[in-house]
């Protein structure tokens, strides 16, 4: 077995001809200043192609969520650049696009828990994402049901969030993330609340979604048992990111 550890600059060596979904260049996030300055993320570079599922692993506090929120246009980086779908969206803390509108159209989110709006049912959660993007109610409803069907939770479509199991909630969240055919899906520990069997199912779901829907997927995970599902693995430690292989993950 080859134990190849690569640093972040190796991404340029990737010979793929696929369309780029996400590209980050030198992302750095610094909290505080002076004596209280904390560097949460330093010079993080990542390339994610359309149809690719990337895992981001690392211990707690290593900067994974900081990276994800920077790429997800939720928490701007201090410096560096984020390109999505080949388009510059963030340069340092400056947005090159309307962030909320861009998030709505091009980014899907799945999180560890409380992914869904509690006062809506499963179908409405998915439908709302499309209605916010300008799709009519009837069309959004139809597509929401199709997505829930694809994800195997159509029979729970009219149930309130509180009536769904953790796995069903994650599937509904994935359906919502896919609702607007996003370029990017970002998932922050989506299997943390699930047993290993369900966790693996969700990871495989992301794999299928990336290929079938043509999105680039970044999944922050602690679950090493499912790393074989991913096309690429990045590891973060003390704010530094490097590309690695499943067997090298600590």
């Amino acid at each position: 077995m080859t134990r190849r550890r690569t640093d972040t600059n190796d991404v340029a060596d990737n010979p793929t001809q696929k369309e780029l979904a996400i590209e980050t260049l030198g992302l750095t996030k610094i909290y505080g200043s002076g004596n209280t300055e904390v560097i949460a993320m330093r010079d993080a570079n990542m390339l994610v192609h359309v149809g690719e599922v990337v895992a981001l692993v690392g211990p707690s506090g290593s900067g994974k969520s900081t990276f994800l929120t920077a790429v997800g246009l939720i928490n701007p980086p201090t410096s560096g650049q984020v390109n999505i779908g080949g388009r510059l969206v963030m340069k340092g803390a400056q947005a090159a696009v309307n962030l909320r509108s861009f998030r709505r159209k091009y980014i899907g989110y799945v999180f560890q828990k409380s992914n869904l709006i509690e006062f809506l049912n499963a179908r409405e959660n998915v439908q709302l994402a499309m209605e916010l993007n300008g799709l009519s109610g009837a069309a959004a409803r139809r597509r929401a049901l199709e997505l829930l069907e694809k994800l195997g939770v159509a029979d729970r479509s009219e149930h309130r969030v509180s009536m769904l199991s953790g796995g069903q909630q994650q599937r509904v969240a994935v359906a919502r993330a896919l609702a607007n055919n996003p370029k990017v899906i970002l998932a922050d520990e989506p299997t943390a609340a699930l047993d290993s069997h369900r966790g693996r199912q969700v990871m495989q779901l992301f794999q299928g979604v990336a290929r079938d829907f043509g999105a680039g997927v970044i999944v922050v995970t602690h679950d090493h048992r499912t790393l074989d599902v991913f096309d690429t693995i990045y590891e973060m430690e003390d704010g530094l990111m490097r590309r690695t292989e499943a067997e090298h993950v600590q």
Binding site: I74, R100, S101, R104, Y109, S114, I117, E118, A129, L132
Partner: peptide, 18 residues
């Protein structure tokens, strides 16, 4: 009571007027 849902709405790109 629904502040979390409001944050989620913002996250998925709901405009302020919504």
């Amino acid at each position: 009571d629904k502040i979390y849902s409001i944050a989620l709405l913002k996250l998925i790109g709901a405009p302020n007027h919504v």
